[in-house]
Design a protein around this nucleic acid. Sequence first.
DNA 1: CCAACACATAAGCATACACTTATGTGATTC
DNA 2: GAATCACATAAGTGTATGCTTATGTGTTGG
Lengths: 104, 104
Amino acid sequence: MMENDIFKALADPTRRMIFEKLASGSMNASSLRDGVEISQPAMSQHLAILCNAKLVRQERRGRFVNYEVDPDGLAMIANWLAKYRAYWPARIDALKDLLKDMDQ
Amino acid sequence: MMENDIFKALADPTRRMIFEKLASGSMNASSLRDGVEISQPAMSQHLAILCNAKLVRQERRGRFVNYEVDPDGLAMIANWLAKYRAYWPARIDALKDLLKDMDQ
DNA sequence: CCAACACATAAGCATACACTTATGTGATTC
DNA sequence: GAATCACATAAGTGTATGCTTATGTGTTGG
């Protein structure tokens, strides 16, 4: 199931870190490792899980592979969250009205 | 970390089912087990994890304990999601403007 | 082509996780 | 106050998960 893949992917702090890094700009796997203490296979495995969850997508660029945030995964989370908008705190209450547009 | 607790809590399909059931109305642990093939300790453990993640909160009612959705957890997810609104698809683009209110 | 590079996959291992059965705790009812 | 009910906690177990080392695959440059 897709919903399960997404939440399982985000349950790991290293993967959220990778995702956050990609959100600041698309890059290849080697660049993602810069300044992070993580092995090459570990990074590759995490990226595969993120891709499978539709949170990240890849594109071959010669012998590099460029990774970037996939909006599909974020949309899935937004949809999940929208189901419970009745419980959102008043502080973000304005969102309730706007989310109506997503329903139809 | 709170963010980690939330995503780990939601990574389990049984806990998401419990959460969804609570979203349809607060109830005690026994009622949550109705129609679900899950042992009493398992339910209790799942509820403890959901409470710890601020997704659910409890309240003693005599010898029952009433469980309900905690808006705090949902707000946390909304905040996490808001960080990546630059990548949200156009379909939920309207959210971008609304989320500005959350920033300040 | 073949050496080097960027990345993916395989296999093994230690830990985390979700479940089980058994027992403990707090509240009610008779 | 003793039995019962609603739930929590303890301890043990099988499986999933994230890491490691080793090797495979695909691309480029000399």
